[in-house]
Design a protein around this nucleic acid. Structure first.
Length: 259
DNA sequence: CCAGACGTTGTT
DNA sequence: GTCTGG
DNA sequence: CCAGACGTTGTT
DNA sequence: GTCTGG
C-alpha cells in the first residue's frame, strides 16, 4: 500500500516541470510527509490542468452522507490494477464508453514511503526518482456532491500493481494477504496516453505495469516518520538514516542508490 | 430478488 | 448507482 | 450467482 | 434443463 508520500516542491515548480497550468498553485504548500489517512490535498494532473484533489476516492453515488464517504475513502487510497475494471467504486473512472466520463489522472510525487519488516520490527524507507524530478503516478479521480450543504469533493486513488525487485525487497510483508503491491509509475512519455479518454481498455491495462527498478533510489529513514510526538513534515525526514539491524544486507543498510 | 456492500493492506 | 452474497 | 428444488391436494 | 430462494 502506498499511504505516505512527499511533494516537496512548490505548485509553480510542478506546473513548470509538467508543463500544465495550475491555477491554485499558491494554495499548495510543499510537503515532506503527506499521510493519506489525513486526507491531504495533492496536486493532480487531469484534463490538461493541475488541480488540488483529496487523497482517498469517494464514488459519485447520490444519497450518501459525508461520514459514509469518509469511511469508505480510508480504503480507497489505492486501487488494485487487477480488479479496477470491476469494482463499483472505480469502474466508471478507469474506463467508460463515453469518453467524457473517463477520469484517469497523474499524481506527481517527489517520493513515497514504505515500511520494511525485519524480525517483527518496522523500518521506514523513502523511495525517490533517480533521474527525474517526479514519479508520475497513475491514478483515477471522482467528483461527489455532498447532498447536505452541496459541497463538491474532488478525490483520487493511486493505482497499485505487482512490485518490482526493489519494492518486493523493501515492502516485504503485507498485512492480511500475501501479495505485495507497488504504485503504478508511468514513463513521462506515457502521461498523455494514460489520460487519453479514447485509449481502449487493453491500452489502459498495458500501462498499469511495474516500473523498472533502474529509475528509483531508496534508503531507510528515521522512525520519526511514524512518531505522533515528532513533526515529521520537515526536510530532514527524507534523509538517509541507517539501522545497524539491517547490516546483514548491503542494499537494506546502505540503500538502493549505491551504484 | 433484495439487502447490504461498495475497499485496501499502516504506523505510533 | 451497481455489484454481490445468500 | 449457485445450491437445491422441480408437486398436488384421496381412495379403499 | 430451468426456476427460485437466499
Amino acid at each position: 500500500m502506498c499511504n505516505r508520500a512527499s511533494v516537496k516542491v512548490t505548485g509553480h515548480e510542478i506546473a513548470k516541470v509538467m508543463n500544465a497550468p495550475f491555477p491554485d498553485a499558491d494554495k499548495f504548500t510543499p510537503v515532506f510527509d503527506a499521510n493519506g489517512f489525513d486526507r491531504p490535498h495533492m496536486p493532480v494532473l487531469a484534463k490538461g490542468e493541475i488541480r488540488l484533489m483529496d487523497w482517498g476516492l469517494m464514488p459519485n453515488w447520490p444519497s450518501k452522507t459525508l461520514s459514509e464517504q469518509l469511511q469508505l475513502s480510508k480504503f480507497t487510497l489505492n486501487a488494485r490494477n487487477d480488479t479496477i475494471f470491476e469494482k463499483a467504486s472505480f469502474k466508471n473512472s478507469i474506463w467508460n464508453e463515453n469518453p467524457d466520463q473517463v477520469k484517469r489522472c497523474v499524481i506527481p510525487l517527489t517520493g513515497f514511503y514504505e515500511p520494511h519488516t525485519y524480525e517483527g520490527k518496522k523500518y521506514p524507507f523513502y523511495i525517490y526518482p533517480k533521474n527525474e524530478p517526479f514519479f508520475y503516478v497513475a491514478g483515477i479521480y471522482s467528483f461527489w456532491k455532498d447532498p447536505i450543504g452541496g459541497d463538491w469533493h474532488v478525490t483520487f486513488s493511486m493505482i497499485t500493481t505487482e512490485p518490482n525487485r526493489i519494492l518486493k525487497k523493501i515492502h516485504n510483508v503485507a498485512t492480511t494477504s500475501d501479495d505485495q503491491r507497488m504504485i503504478v509509475i508511468l514513463e513521462k512519455r506515457n502521461i498523455e496516453l494514460w489520460m487519453d479518454p479514447l485509449l481502449p481498455k487493453e491500452g489502459v491495462k498495458q500501462l498499469m505495469q511495474p516500473c523498472p527498478e533502474e529509475i528509483m533510489g531508496a534508503h531507510s529513514v528515521s522512525r520519526n516518520l511514524y512518531s505522533p510526538k515528532v513533526d515529521s513534515n520537515t526536510p530532514e525526514i527524507i534523509d538517509y538514516f541507517p539501522y545497524e539491524d539491517l547490516k546483514f544486507d548491503d542494499e537494506l543498510y546502505y540503500g538502493f542508490n549505491l551504484k
